[in-house]
Design a binder for these strands. Structure first.
Length: 300
DNA sequence: CGGCTTTGACCCGCGC
DNA sequence: GCGCGGGTCAAAGCCG
């Protein structure tokens, strides 16, 4: 089988605070439908594979080009670490310009029922509760990424329920608040559009999912991240580091292939029609993963 | 009918 | 204390 390899540049965010210019090699099989050489591919739906070009730039068909070109990832807790995908020479907005640094955020790890605030008012040890909440709140991993996208809410494999929307000061664009719909998963995300560059969507994740990507979701990313290969125990990241799946998903939201609950999902349409690249650019997920994190997925 | 969005009201922290 | 801004609640409505 012939394999075409190209280089994909990105800054590695995952392990430390030092942004590192890294080179990963994306490999995909060329002109072959022979998946037997990649038995792991059988767990995915081959119809949802994206071409290498789409990995880099987002969907190329259906005028989707550049809609999902991710521009930056900002890790919020410390100095912003920028991850830039692609080499489009874009000038993304300043990471700090639109990410929230507000201190009055809710505790993501708590169950998000309506009890939180109101009960704490009735509780005798009100102060202790507040302090505890504050500590827990500060522990929540949080990071933001900026995506060049025409749609506000990018699919990431998880199901979200919108629970609020607020006007943002000095910005004509509102900020939307979402919560993961899975019970006892307190992950939240905020989505807003950069007022400096309206083509850029800023998504801020808060907390870590305590469950896999919903299994009933379509698309190879959901399948990939629910596979045993992505068991948390295999992930090389220390505690306190944002969940890898989220990070990888955050890097490549244009990979999200499932048909989620939201009607503005660009990928809804593409999952209904076979990708045009299927014959000559079948993408190997495993090869991709090997190259991104070779110490987790050593080449055989 | 269940799941979701919308949206005004409310809560809370912070600065003045 | 007051006002402001961010975040959340929850009722109402929409939709498949």
């Amino acid at each position: 089988m012939s394999e075409d390899c190209r280089e994909f540049y990105y800054n590695q965010l995952f392990h430390d605070d030092q942004p590192r210019q890294s080179t990963a090699t994306f490999s995909y099989s060329g002109g072959s439908d022979d998946l037997s050489v990649h038995p792991h591919l059988q767990i995915f739906d081959p119809n949802s594979y994206l071409s290498f070009n789409e990995i880099l730039h987002g969907p190329t068909g259906d005028d989707d080009h550049n809609k999902y070109a991710i521009t930056e990832i900002v890790k919020e807790e410390e100095k912003p670490v920028v991850v830039r995908v692609g080499e489009g020479g874009e000038t993304p907005a300043t990471p700090n310009s639109s990410t929230t640094t507000s201190s009055n955020e809710a505790v993501a790890s708590e169950e998000y029922s309506n009890k939180g605030k109101k009960e704490s008012q009735e509780n005798p040890s009100e102060k202790e509760v507040k302090v505890k909440k504050k500590v827990e709140k500060e522990k929540q991993p949080r990071f933001a990424f900026m995506t060049k996208s025409e749609v506000d809410h990018l699919e990431d494999g998880y199901r979200w329920r919108k629970y609020g929307q607020k006007a943002v000061k000095n910005s004509p664009y509102p900020r939307s608040y979402y919560r993961c719909t899975t019970q006892k998963c307190g992950v939240k995300k905020r989505v807003e559009r950069s007022f400096e560059d309206p083509s850029i969507v800023i998504t801020t994740y808060e907390g870590q999912h305590n469950h896999p990507v919903p299994a009933n979701l379509r698309g190879h990313v959901a399948g990939m991240f629910t596979s045993p290969m992505f068991a948390p125990s295999l992930m090389p990241f220390g505690s306190g580091s944002p969940d890898f799946t989220q990070q990888l998903l955050a890097q490549m939201p244009h990979l999200y292939g499932y048909d989620g609950a939201n009607s503005n999902n660009l990928y809804h349409q593409r999952t209904l029609t076979p990708p045009r690249h299927q014959h000559n650019q079948q993408f190997s997920d495993y090869g991709l993963l090997q190259d991104i994190i070779p110490h987790v997925f050593p080449k055989q």
